[in-house]
Design a protein around this nucleic acid. Structure first.
Length: 305
DNA sequence: GCCCAGGCGCTAC
DNA sequence: GTAGCGCATGGG
């Protein structure tokens, strides 16, 4: 991690392939997003650090990410944790040069990496958030998924007010482990999804499941196997979480309908590609399937490609 | 009213 | 091991 810590702010230095505009397009994709806000040229994000809510005011620039604290300045020992969150949020650890080397020889990815050069996977460092988000979004459109997430966060999360705006924290497993299925049914989660989410909260609250425990696993397949053993987590959800939370570049949610639609459009097909066809395209992407997927998802936000 | 949504678990064969 | 089905509701 390349950064400096001062008393009143942090400055993080991203690698050269980092396009702030591209990252912002992703961060702005829903007007129902409640876990960050973009305002006055800053990105605002509330984090809970050592038990305290810390509002971060982030200036994203290509050569520097400056983080200031407009409410409470955290202790200097908290600075590293904040920097690590942001480092993971924008997947700044990855060296994308070999992805770009591969992509410029790939007929599907070539135009995407030209158009979106410097786009990085926008991560979700909080495992509970990643699991709840993925499960909530199973088999429903993204707009509805964002509605569910907003209700969930506003019902069970902590918040702070600053200059007339409310900033939210994602609810902790400890809190969700104590609620009932009906509490989530009222927010229009399905009965099943409500059970899955509460069960996962219980597992995480007692430490049976954590990011650390997953990262101990030696291989991708072992991490995936561990996730898939959880009720409500199938192959798609496991790959999604490994991509967005554990930042595994080889993760590949191959059954993803967004991926299918992006490929259909990119290749001007009359129908969505089959799994066999996608497997064939992806042979060339080995080791970078997550980035290939993320760039394809990005293409869905362009009207003119 | 219809089809599709960033799927999954369960059952039957 | 896999094909089929119910879930449960919003968006277009």
């Amino acid at each position: 991690m390349n950064w400096i810590s001062q008393k009143e702010f942090i400055e993080i230095y991203p690698p050269k392939e980092f396009n702030t505009e591209e990252c912002l397009i992703f961060l702005k994709r829903s007007n129902q997003e409640v876990l960050h806000r973009i305002k006055d040229g800053y990105l605002f994000k509330l984090l809970k650090i050592n038990g305290l809510p810390i509002l971060c005011q982030i200036k994203l620039q290509s050569n520097s990410i400056k983080v200031e604290f407009p409410m409470h300045v955290p202790s200097e020992r908290s600075h590293e944790e904040i920097a690590q969150y942001i480092w993971a949020w924008f997947d700044l650890e990855k060296d994308l040069s070999s992805f770009y080397e591969m992509a410029k020889e790939d007929s599907i990815l070539k135009p995407l990496v030209q158009n979106y050069y410097g786009l990085r996977i926008i991560g979700m460092p909080d495992l509970f958030e990643a699991l709840v988000w993925a499960i909530s979004g199973q088999q429903i459109n993204l707009t509805f998924a964002y509605s569910l997430k907003r209700r969930f966060v506003e019902q069970f999360g902590e918040s702070v007010m600053f200059k007339g705006e409310t900033y939210w924290l994602f609810p902790l497993p400890e809190r969700i482990s104590t609620i009932q299925v009906d509490d989530l049914r009222q927010l229009q989660f399905t009965h099943r999804k409500s059970e899955y989410i509460i069960d996962i909260a219980k597992m995480m609250a007692i430490g049976q499941l954590s990011k650390e425990k997953l990262l101990i696993k030696a291989t991708y397949d072992e991490m995936k196997k561990c996730l898939v053993s959880i009720r409500g987590v199938g192959a798609w959800t496991a790959d999604y979480v490994l991509m967005k939370c554990l930042l595994q570049p080889e993760s590949f949610p191959i059954a993803d309908v967004g991926l299918h639609n992006a490929l259909k459009r990119q290749l001007a097909l009359n129908q969505k590609p089959t799994i066999e066809e996608i497997t064939s395209y992806a042979m060339h992407w080995t080791g970078w399937q997550a980035y290939a997927t993320f760039y394809l998802w990005r293409s869905l936000y362009d009207e003119t490609l």
